[in-house]
């Protein structure tokens, strides 16, 4: 007799069930129940935002090197659980070959962003030669709490590809898993949990996007939102984002493509900060020292 896994959600570094007590059954092609998955509520979203905000100070101010190390650790942990992800992907309809390709692409993608963590600021910052006696530089800072709506037709690679650039840049995440393919998202949360990522840095909820998204999009303490094309939800989501001028990004990519990764996906979730300081003018330009 096999032991079945209970799929729970991930908030503030813990794995609770939804506060609502609701669930939905995930069926296989024969109509048999594979798992009972949490049907999260608006309240779960709000709890996740609180956890993500609390975690933001600590994660955003970690050294870039340390974030890079932790991202690489995520790749290591995922690699160690390859078999489990392949099994879940095949259970959700992938062929063995597709599942294997998806898992190895996910690992590569995490390694890619692990490498960026201590480089993107260098590449995208500037020292600005102002026309006055000031030292002036522009650097990047994370936006804060970012909502991530994982692609509906992907269980693992879509979520990983959207979360990693956001995380790499020092933001914290409230993620909504694919409603019909949620299993890998929960297992990915377990990977994150064992990767030295501080609790609350990434939070992952399962359930109906149309139930949770309006709360996430309108939440005044969420700084940005990223999703793929949401169809009929595009316009209401965009309008809700205007309430606190949430930065909203839509990326529609073939996430299984090797090219579906770049610097801009990191800098989309960064604010440019410019700092000025006077330069003392003692000693003439003729002094040649």
């Amino acid at each position: 007799m096999e032991i079945l896994k209970t799929y729970k959600i991930y908030i503030g570094g813990a794995f609770p069930r939804t506060e609502s007590g609701r669930y939905y059954a995930l069926l296989d092609s024969n109509g048999n129940t594979q798992a009972n998955v949490c049907l999260c509520s608006k309240k779960d979203i709000r709890n996740a935002v609180v956890a993500a905000r609390k975690a933001f100070g600590g994660w955003g101010e970690r050294s870039a090197f340390n974030r890079s190390q932790i991202l690489y650790r995520i790749a290591e942990m995922l690699n160690g659980r390859k078999a489990q992800f392949i099994e879940e992907l095949t259970l959700q309809g992938s062929t063995q070959a597709q599942a294997e390709a998806e898992v190895s692409m996910a690992i590569d993608r995490i390694v890619y962003y692990a490498g960026w963590a201590d480089k993107f600021v260098q590449v995208a910052s500037s020292v600005n030669p102002v026309n006055s006696s000031h030292f002036n530089f522009s650097t990047l800072e994370p936006m804060g709490v970012v909502g991530v709506v994982a692609p509906a037709n992907s269980s693992l690679i879509g979520l990983v590809s959207m979360v990693m650039p956001v995380l790499c840049g020092g933001n914290t995440v409230v993620g909504i898993a694919s409603e019909k393919l949620p299993l890998c998202a929960v297992t990915f949360a377990e990977v994150l949990h064992t990767s030295d990522l501080p609790g609350g840095t990434v939070n992952i909820l399962t359930g109906k996007t149309e139930e949770m998204l309006p709360t996430l999009a309108a939440h005044m303490d969420v700084n940005a939102l990223v999703s793929e094309d949401l169809g009929p939800l595009n316009i209401p989501t965009a309008l809700a984002c205007v309430d606190n001028l949430k930065r909203k990004f839509q990326c529609d990519q073939d996430w299984m493509s090797r090219d579906a990764q770049n610097l801009q996906l990191i800098t989309h979730f960064q604010e440019v900060k410019t700092t000025w300081h006077p330069i003392e003018n003692i000693g003439g330009s003729s002094s040649s020292y």
Binding site: N128, V130, S132, S138, E271, K273, T274, T275, P278
Partner: peptide, 28 residues
């Protein structure tokens, strides 16, 4: 200057502008 959530931080100066210097805000 790291912790203040603002697009421009003037340290020991204020209201300076320059074409080479990016200007713009965080949040609302």
């Amino acid at each position: 200057s790291t912790k203040l959530r603002a697009g421009v931080v003037w340290a020991n100066t204020y209201n300076k502008f320059d074409p080479t210097s990016p200007f713009g805000g965080f949040k609302e």
